[in-house]
C-alpha cells in the first residue's frame, strides 16, 4: 500500500484540524498508536467480498417521507440557552 495508508502523527494532526479539535502532544501521540491498532483491525473488512453489493444506509430502506409545504411557526426563544447573544442575534467569533 502507498504512503497514504500510513497512520502517523502528521495524519492525526491533520484530522484534528479538519475536526476542529485541539489535541495536546500527548493526545496526538496516544491516538496515533491507538489508531494504528484499531484501523489495522478494521482492515478485516477487506476480506469480505462486496462486489456488486449496495451500501445499506439504513437497516431497512424507507423512501419518500416528505412534509407538506406549510409554514408552522415554532413558539420558543432560540436564545434561551446561550450566553453569546447581542439583542436578538447570536454572537459568534470572528472569521480570521
Amino acid at each position: 500500500m502507498s504512503d497514504q495508508w500510513t497512520i502517523d502523527r502528521g495524519l492525526v494532526e491533520r484530522i484534528s484540524k479538519v475536526a476542529r479539535l485541539e489535541l495536546t502532544q500527548d493526545e496526538v501521540e496516544k491516538f496515533t498508536g491507538q489508531l494504528k491498532v484499531i484501523l489495522e483491525a478494521f482492515r478485516e473488512l477487506d476480506d469480505v467480498d462486496t462486489e456488486g453489493v449496495e451500501p445499506s444506509f439504513h437497516p431497512q430502506e424507507l423512501s419518500n417521507v416528505l412534509r407538506e409545504d406549510e409554514a408552522t411557526p415554532w413558539n420558543w426563544d432560540p436564545l434561551e440557552n446561550t450566553e453569546h447573544r447581542e439583542g436578538r442575534h447570536f454572537k459568534g467569533p470572528r472569521i480570521q
Binding site: N81, T82, H84, F90, K91, G92
Partner: peptide, 15 residues
Amino acid sequence: SGLRYGLHLPLEGSF
C-alpha cells in the same frame, strides 16, 4: 461548538 447552547467559553480568537 459553544455558540448556541451547552458549554460556553469567552469568545476569543477566530472561529
